[in-house]
Amino acid sequence: MERKIKQQVRGYRTQDGAGVNLVRVLGNRTIQEYDPILMLDSFDSTNPDDYTAGFPMHPHRGIETISYVYRGYMTHRDSLGNEDTIGEGEVQWMTAGSGILHEEKIPASTRLLGVQFWLNLPAKDKMAPPAYRSIKNSEIEEIELENGKLRLLAGEYEGRKGYVSKYLPLDYYDIHLNPHSPMVLNTEGERSVMVFTLLGDAYVGGELIKEKTAVKLTSGDHVEIMATDKSAQVLYISSKLLAEPVVWGGPIVMNTKEELDKAFDDLKKGTFLQNSISY
C-alpha cells in the first residue's frame, strides 16, 4: 500500500539562540503527529547577519539533537569537552541524555543551508549518558539513483548501511532529484515516516508539497517522491513511534512534570551535569 500525506506543516520565520533567523517547522504543537520527532528547524541564508550570532551555551536533557549542514559550517562545543566543526554535507549527532551543556557557533559562509531536529529519547533512555558524535563526509555514502542521488546520512537503504542510532532506529536520507524525476522508496509498514522539502517543491504521494514543508505519511510499504519541472532536495526521516507522554519545557523534554521540575531544580542547584566538565 502506498503511503500518502496524513498532515503537512509549512515552516514560519522566527529567531532563536542569540538572534539566529531560521524557519521553525515542527514544535510543541506537532508532537503527537510527528512522534518521535519533536522539533525541526531549517536554516537557509546567504546573509551571515542572519546566523553568526549562533547559539550560546545552553542545557538539554531527554533528547538527541541531530544537525545536518549541507552548505556552510557549524562548530559544536560541549560540557563533555568536545569541540568539533561540521559542514558541507556533514551531520552532528548529540545525545543529551541525563544532561549536557553545548553551544553552536556558525561562521560566515557563502550560504548556510541545513536543518536541526530533536529526536525524542524513550523513557527508559532519558537519563542515558550524554555523548557527541559527528558523521563526516567520508562516512556518508552517496548512492547514484536513476534520476538523481541519495546521501545515506544514517540507518539503512536497500541493504546499504550508514551510521546506526543507539537508542531509536533512524533512517535519514538526503534525496536529490532531477526535474520531472520520480523515485519510489520502500518503507517498513509501521514505521513513523516524515519528509521535508529542503529545496524546491516536490510531489509526495501524488500531492504537491511546497518548499520548507514537513509532511507526515500514512502507514504503508512504499512512497513515491517526484520533482516538479525543477530539481528538488528532500529529506526523508523514518523511525519508531514512541507513543509515550511528552512533557516539554524549553530545552528539556521528559515524560512527567515531576521529571521536568527535577531537571530545572538540578540546573538551579548545579547538579544537572553528570560525567561532564564545567565551562
Rank of each mutant, 00 (worst) to 15 (best):
R111Q: 12
D266N: 08
N137A: 13
S278I: 15
L150Q: 04
A108P: 02
E141M: 13
P48C: 04
V223A: 03
D125K: 11
I143N: 00
Y203S: 04
S238F: 02
H58K: 02
R3M: 02
L235I: 13
V253T: 02
G249K: 02
D50M: 07
H102T: 09
L242Y: 07
A263M: 06
H58I: 06
V23K: 14
T271R: 03
E90A: 09
E156N: 09
Y167T: 10
Q15S: 07
G270F: 08
L152N: 00
S165N: 06
L119Y: 12
I277V: 15
R191C: 04
L242F: 11
G162T: 02
L168Y: 06
S42K: 13
T14A: 02
Y163H: 09
A131C: 11
N178Y: 09
E2R: 15
M254L: 13
I143S: 03
F117W: 08
F264A: 02
G189K: 14
G62K: 01
H176Q: 12
R24A: 01
T187V: 09
I66V: 14
H58N: 06
I5L: 06
S238G: 11
E139N: 07
I209H: 10
D44A: 11
T187F: 09
L177S: 03
D50K: 12
I225M: 04
G81D: 05
G97R: 01
E244S: 02
I63H: 05
Y68H: 11
Q32L: 12
S42D: 13
S239F: 05
P130F: 07
R10V: 15
H102K: 04
L38Q: 08
T52E: 09
G189C: 14
R29K: 15
H180M: 14
P169C: 03
A53G: 02
P251M: 04
L113V: 10
S192I: 03
E211P: 12
A108W: 12
A214H: 05
K216Y: 06
L168I: 07
L177P: 00
L273K: 00
D229G: 12
E139T: 00
E142V: 15
P59F: 01
G155S: 07
K149W: 06
K105S: 15
V195Q: 04
R111L: 13
G89W: 00
